[in-house]
Amino acid sequence: MANMRVLLVDDDADLCTMQAEYLATEGFDADAVFDGEAGVHAALTGSYAAVVLDVMMPRLGGIDALRQIRAQSQVPVIMLTAKGDGIDRIVGLELGADDYIPKPCMPRELVARLRAILRRTQGSDSHTPQHAGPLSLFPEYRRAEWNGVPLELTNSEFQLLEILVSAGGRVLTKNELCERGLGRPHTRYDRSVDVHMSNLRQKLGNYPDGRSPIQTVRGVGYRLAND
């Protein structure tokens, strides 16, 4: 995981400097830009393994920057949100953010989240396609298809879908999905898994009888239904 290039997008130059210095001690090369427009341009160059994007910035805010990035790229994105601002977190996840961290955040937590995302997106050594009815996953290429039609999934969405397929219809708790899919424990008010599952339902097709392949098991978690 050493020497991975990370893009920091935040108008707080001092914070970026501190984060970049800490990331360097952990084996990352970090570049910083200080507004959303520059962040979008840099993120779309394909030079970075991950992007850390602040929500609150002048000119072009983080949410709009994320929207523009996702229109052209699936590079992993971690959003930095104001502590307690659940709306920004949910909107960011709905638009395709892979994870979020409330500010102020500890540099150690940022490193842990980055490593978790990069393990998921670059650590798969499986070459065997997985199939569940009309759904096909190709882990080696991080690609998914529904009835042969490619799906535009974020890295976190792909990871969660892969976990559901591997479970073979078994119900997975939110904590299992959060730990294995997002690389962190599930907390009481964390809606990340729910938002990702909602996004997946919208992107996947339905079975002929109208059912979604992703079923909610109330009070427990989610399962992938058989067609």
Score class of each variant (00 low, 15 high):
residue 58 P to W: 05
residue 19 Q to I: 11
residue 203 K to Y: 08
residue 92 G to A: 12
residue 28 F to M: 12
residue 53 L to N: 03
residue 49 A to C: 08
residue 42 A to V: 03
residue 53 L to C: 08
residue 130 Q to F: 06
residue 92 G to F: 00
residue 225 A to P: 02
residue 197 M to C: 13
residue 194 D to A: 15
residue 214 I to V: 13
residue 204 L to H: 12
residue 211 R to K: 13
residue 119 R to D: 14
residue 38 A to I: 01
residue 135 L to F: 08
residue 148 G to S: 02
residue 49 A to V: 02
residue 193 V to P: 00
residue 68 Q to M: 14
residue 211 R to C: 10
residue 104 P to A: 04
residue 141 Y to V: 07
residue 76 P to C: 06
residue 99 D to G: 01
residue 225 A to H: 03
residue 65 A to I: 07
residue 119 R to W: 03
residue 80 L to N: 01
residue 185 P to S: 12
residue 51 V to D: 00
residue 226 N to M: 10
residue 118 L to A: 11
residue 22 Y to S: 04
residue 73 S to K: 10
residue 210 G to V: 07
residue 210 G to Q: 05
residue 75 V to A: 11
residue 157 E to D: 12
residue 35 D to L: 09
residue 157 E to W: 10
residue 11 D to R: 08
residue 9 V to T: 06
residue 71 A to P: 04
residue 160 L to W: 03
residue 73 S to Y: 08
residue 158 F to A: 07
residue 192 S to V: 01
residue 32 A to T: 05
residue 108 R to P: 00
residue 187 T to C: 01
residue 56 M to K: 12
residue 44 L to T: 09
residue 62 G to H: 07
residue 127 H to C: 03
residue 28 F to K: 10
residue 186 H to K: 11
residue 136 S to H: 08
residue 36 G to T: 09
residue 33 V to N: 11
residue 131 H to C: 04
residue 177 L to S: 04
residue 66 L to N: 08
residue 125 D to M: 12
residue 216 T to W: 00
residue 150 P to N: 09
residue 115 R to G: 10
residue 56 M to Q: 13
residue 151 L to G: 11
residue 155 N to V: 08
residue 145 E to L: 13
residue 189 Y to R: 13
residue 103 K to F: 00
residue 202 Q to S: 11
residue 193 V to D: 02
residue 69 I to E: 01
residue 96 G to H: 07
residue 195 V to N: 00
residue 7 L to S: 04
residue 31 D to R: 15
residue 130 Q to S: 09
residue 197 M to Q: 11
residue 63 I to L: 15
residue 171 V to H: 03
residue 101 I to R: 02
residue 195 V to Q: 00
residue 108 R to Y: 02
residue 30 A to C: 10
residue 112 A to F: 08
residue 80 L to I: 07
residue 210 G to W: 04
residue 142 R to V: 05
residue 154 T to I: 05
residue 50 A to G: 02
residue 136 S to F: 01
residue 151 L to H: 05
residue 166 S to G: 10
residue 144 A to W: 10
residue 175 N to A: 13
residue 135 L to N: 12
residue 11 D to I: 04
residue 3 N to Y: 05
residue 37 E to L: 13
residue 40 V to T: 10
residue 96 G to P: 14
residue 225 A to E: 14
residue 193 V to E: 00
residue 144 A to S: 14
residue 170 R to E: 11
residue 24 A to G: 11
residue 164 L to C: 11
residue 34 F to M: 09
residue 59 R to N: 05
residue 150 P to L: 09
residue 91 V to L: 10
residue 153 L to S: 08
residue 111 V to L: 03
residue 80 L to Q: 14
residue 4 M to D: 13
residue 183 G to E: 02
residue 168 G to F: 03
residue 28 F to H: 11
residue 217 V to A: 06
residue 133 G to Q: 10
residue 103 K to E: 02
residue 3 N to W: 03
residue 150 P to I: 06
residue 4 M to N: 10
residue 153 L to M: 07
residue 159 Q to H: 09
residue 8 L to W: 02
residue 65 A to V: 07
residue 51 V to N: 06
residue 162 E to D: 15
residue 206 N to C: 14
residue 173 T to P: 02
residue 83 K to P: 00
residue 176 E to N: 08
residue 84 G to P: 01
residue 21 E to Q: 14
residue 220 V to S: 06
residue 181 G to L: 04
